[in-house]
C-alpha cells in the first residue's frame, strides 16, 4: 500500500444510526489533509476508526505496519481524580527518557510544564501537552481532532503555527479535523468535506468552489472564502514547494 493509513468502504454505526457510510480514505507520507463538515457529520468517528479505537461495521482500515502515529483527541479533560504530572503523563504507555520528555515539551511550546498537575493546566496548556505526547515517538503522521477547541483566537492561531512549523521540520503527514475552515484550508494539500459520506474532496480551492461544500456550509461561505483566498495566496508565497500531490 502507498498510503500511511487507508480505509475502504468504511461504514460505522452508533446503535442504529449510520454515522459513516462507504468512506474511502488514504493519506500519503507528508501530506496534509483536513476534514471539514457540520456537527455530527462523522469527522471524529472517522478519525477514531482510523486510529483503531472504533471497529468498522463494514469495510476495513489498513495502517502501515509499525506505523508511528501521534494522536490529539478532541476535548479531552482530566477531572483530577487521578494525580498525574505532565512528565508522568508523557511516560504512558511507554517509559521515555527525561531528555525526550523535555525535548517534545519544548517543541510543543510547553517547556515549563513538566512538573505541573494535568488537572491544573489551562485549555491551551493542556492541548500543548497532548501535542507534546503525540510528538514523542517521532510520528510519521499526526492526527489532530479539532485541536484548538476551547482556545481563544490568538491561542488557535499560535497552535496552528506550531503545527505548521513542526510539520515543516519533521516532514510528517498531518490529518486534522477542524471548524476553523479558513485557517486550516490555507495550509492543506487536500480537504475532505464529510457529511456521513465524502461529499467532495480535493485541493482546497476546488472544494471551496464545489456545490456540495456550499450546500453544507451555506451563505456563511462567502466570508470564509474571501478570507481563505487571502490566506491562501499569502501562504503560497512562502510555500517551499509541494511535498505531495493529492491528485
Amino acid at each position: 500500500m502507498s498510503g500511511l493509513i487507508e480505509a475502504q468502504g468504511l461504514t460505522l454505526r452508533h446503535g442504529t444510526r449510520e454515522v459513516l457510510r462507504d468512506v474511502d480514505f488514504s493519506i500519503a507520507p507528508a501530506e496534509i489533509v483536513t476534514v471539514v463538515g457540520p456537527n455530527g457529520s462523522g469527522k471524529s468517528t472517522l478519525l477514531r476508526a482510523l486510529i483503531g479505537a472504533l471497529k468498522p461495521s463494514r469495510g476495513k482500515v489498513t495502517r502501515q505496519p509499525a506505523l508511528r502515529l501521534g494522536y490529539v483527541p478532541q476535548g479531552l479533560r482530566l477531572d483530577g481524580s487521578m494525580p498525574m504530572t505532565v512528565a508522568r503523563f508523557l511516560n504512558l504507555p511507554k517509559r521515555v527518557s527525561a531528555a525526550d520528555c523535555s525535548k517534545v515539551l519544548d517543541e510543543a511550546g510547553a517547556g515549563d510544564l513538566a512538573d505541573r498537575q494535568m488537572s491544573d493546566l489551562s485549555g491551551g496548556q493542556f492541548q500543548r501537552v497532548l501535542l507534546a505526547r503525540a510528538l514523542l515517538n517521532d510520528p510519521q503522521i499526526l492526527i489532530l481532532d479539532e485541536p484548538t477547541t476551547g482556545l481563544d483566537q490568538p491561542g488557535q492561531a499560535s497552535f496552528y503555527r506550531q503545527i505548521e512549523a513542526l510539520r515543516d521540520r519533521m516532514g510528517c503527514a498531518v490529518l486534522m479535523v477542524s471548524h476553523e475552515l479558513h485557517v486550516v484550508m490555507s495550509a492543506s494539500d487536500r480537504v475532505i468535506c464529510l457529511n456521513g459520506h465524502v461529499c467532495c474532496e480535493g485541493h482546497p480551492e476546488v472544494v471551496a468552489q464545489a456545490e456540495e461544500y456550499r450546500a453544507l456550509f451555506g451563505t456563511g461561505t462567502q466570508g470564509a472564502l474571501a478570507l481563505y483566498r487571502h490566506e491562501h495566496t499569502h501562504r503560497h508565497d512562502h510555500a517551499p514547494g509541494e511535498t505531495c500531490d493529492a491528485g
Binding site: I51, G52, A53, L76, M82, M84, L92, P93
Partner: peptide, 9 residues
C-alpha cells in the same frame, strides 16, 4: 485517562 489515546498507542 483516555480510551482513544490508548487505542492510538
Amino acid at each position: 485517562l483516555s480510551p482513544d489515546l490508548a487505542a492510538a498507542s
